[in-house]
């Protein structure tokens, strides 16, 4: 049987663990809110950028751009958005299970986050590039990722670019999801959609484009692409932090349960030793008397 000192030592160490997990839970919950806020802050930009793109596309009817071109999909690129650190429950394993389903011969991988990079390197996938991103992803980081995807797509190396990320459903559940970012789709559809949503705002006609229609649309479409990537990263971050929050909450609860069990054990051992001592004293007295 363990001595009281051993048990006391274990209680102390479990208490330390509980404190750490509790702190991590709080940090994760504040970071989750930040990621959600960042996603919301980006909305006016998305709305305005879409509006300008739609206006421009509505005016330039005979317009085509490499980023919009839909081709037969022979080879595709998959951007895997994982976390940098563990301790977030089954988030990464669920995500990477989806990544495995892609045919290795016809897929090039782009890893975002350390866990994905490690996994793809270990399983010897065709890793084209590797990116890291911070807790609140900046637009520049997303632009770098988007540019890499764009280059692969425009050069004809791949015919489609998908993003595999963890969708944020609510604080308790996140699910791996796949979103196709390239090709961007026909702008004519978007024009029609926009016209339906805002029937009162007929766009002005005969825009002057400077430096040229192509140049302006190129930039607008690049923003659109970067922005889509950014939104997906924000969502993946929010999922990560909420998953971590839940995992840490469970860990704290487990630690507290363990402390309870150990305290009970400790008291039992303590009482047993007191009883034993009393018994010894009584026996000794009886022997003397």
């Amino acid at each position: 049987m363990a001595s009281t000192r051993d048990i006391r030592r274990r209680i102390k160490s479990v208490k330390g663990t509980a404190q750490i997990t509790k702190a991590m839970q709080m940090v994760a919950s504040s970071k989750m809110r930040k990621a959600q806020q960042a996603a919301i802050n980006g909305r006016p930009f998305a709305a305005l950028s879409r509006e300008i793109t739609v206006h421009a596309a509505a005016d330039a009817t005979d317009f085509s751009h490499p980023l919009l071109e839909e081709r037969e999909v022979r080879k595709r690129a998959l951007i895997v958005v994982s976390t940098d650190k563990g301790l977030c429950g089954a988030l990464n394993s669920n995500l990477l299970r989806e990544a495995v389903k892609y045919d290795t011969a016809h897929t090039r991988f782009i890893a975002v986050g350390k866990k994905a990079a490690q996994f793809l390197a270990r399983t010897r996938r065709d890793l084209a590039a590797e990116f890291t991103y911070r807790d609140t992803p900046t637009f520049s980081e997303c632009q770098a990722i988007a540019n890499c995807a764009k280059e692969m797509f425009v050069s004809g190396e791949v015919d489609q670019v998908d993003v595999l990320y963890t969708r944020f459903i609510n604080t308790l559940s996140q699910r791996p999801d796949i979103h196709t970012v390239l090709p961007l789709g026909d702008p004519a559809d978007k024009v029609a959609e926009h016209a339906k949503a805002h029937p009162e705002a007929a766009p002005a006609r005969d825009y002057i484009f400077e430096p040229s229609v192509g140049g302006v649309l190129e930039q607008l479409l690049t923003y659109e692409l970067s922005f889509q990537v950014a939104q997906l990263l924000f969502e993946a971050k929010a999922s990560e932090h909420s998953a971590r929050m839940v995992a840490m909450k469970n860990a704290t609860e487990n630690a507290q349960q363990l402390i309870k069990a150990l305290t009970l054990e400790y008291n039992k051992v303590r009482q047993a030793s007191i009883t034993k001592e009393l018994l010894e004293i009584a026996t000794a007295q009886m022997a003397l008397g």
Binding site: D206, Y207, I208, F209, E210, P211, V216
Partner: peptide
């Protein structure tokens, strides 16, 4: 600050999209 040079915009400007 347009990429093609500075431009001043007054009300009732012709529709324009620029980088």
């Amino acid at each position: 600050p347009g990429t093609e040079g500075e431009m001043g915009i007054l009300p009732q400007h012709a529709p324009l999209i620029t980088t």
